[in-house]
Design a protein around this nucleic acid. Structure first.
Length: 219
DNA sequence: GACCAGGCACATC
DNA sequence: GATGTGCATGGT
């Protein structure tokens, strides 16, 4: 295989040309992005859509209303997005965080990026990927979102992760250092990785012949 | 019917 | 600190 080192930004450009822009996040409002980021934990997006549709049908895509319904009812509605009871609690925790700012998302958005990240990470049920998805996709902060796909694609293309227990931060910094510091690029790049992961770079597949970046590596 | 998806917290060693 | 485990749906 004639694999050669490549500029990471070139990889982005190839993926963008191959798949086209992804126009993330698929949601109508900031609040929908925020809860979608949480519901998307460990589940495919189609299941999340079902859960959000259930909430929409009950006119619950609203933090104040959502806070009032009991956990069991909420769990029932979000059941399609997997781990219903645990995610119901996490949703409540997240909305209680929003309540600290009087549900004023613009006010939250004005916080400094790293400060807001720390606050989000204190919420039980919000880990790095969920926090970063909210930061980037809801609040337009310059944070590169890493996920299981990012790791898989990175490693399958020759990338070597040095730290055993902090691969998330390692990859986030890796990409942030190598691509232009631009929210739109961060947005599209992560979405394109997900698209690649969903189409060609599946768990069971080895490096696939159809992969648009099959000859490129991340070294 | 098996496998896995846009994770996270917590227990346990 | 690192590694394992519960969570417990629905698409392909």
């Amino acid at each position: 295989m004639n694999s050669f080192n490549s500029n990471i930004f070139d990889i982005f450009k190839i993926l963008l040309k191959h798949f086209g822009p992804q126009y993330w996040w698929p949601a109508k409002t900031k609040f929908e992005i925020i809860i979608g980021a949480l519901l998307a934990q460990g589940v495919n997006w189609k299941n999340v859509e079902k859960a959000i549709l259930n909430l929409e049908r009950e006119d619950l895509l609203n933090p104040q209303k959502l806070l009032k319904i009991d956990d069991k009812k909420l769990a029932q509605l979000i059941k399609p997005s997997r781990y219903p009871s645990i995610k119901a609690k996490r949703l409540k925790n997240l909305i209680l965080f929003l309540k600290e700012f009087e549900f004023n998302l613009e006010k939250i958005e004005r916080l400094e990026t790293i400060e807001l990240r720390k606050l989000l990470l204190k919420v039980n049920g919000i880990g790095k990927e969920t926090a970063d998805s909210i930061l980037l996709y809801a609040f337009n902060k310059k944070i590169f979102v890493v996920d299981a796909y990012t790791k898989r694609i990175f490693e399958r293309h020759g990338g070597k992760i040095k730290s055993r227990n902090n691969w998330y931060e390692e990859l986030r910094i890796f990409f942030e250092k190598r691509i232009p510091e631009n929210v739109n690029i961060y947005n599209e790049f992560h979405a394109l990785f997900v698209q690649l992961g969903n189409s060609y770079c599946k768990t069971k597949n080895p490096l696939c012949k159809k992969c648009p970046i099959k000859n490129l590596n991340f070294l």
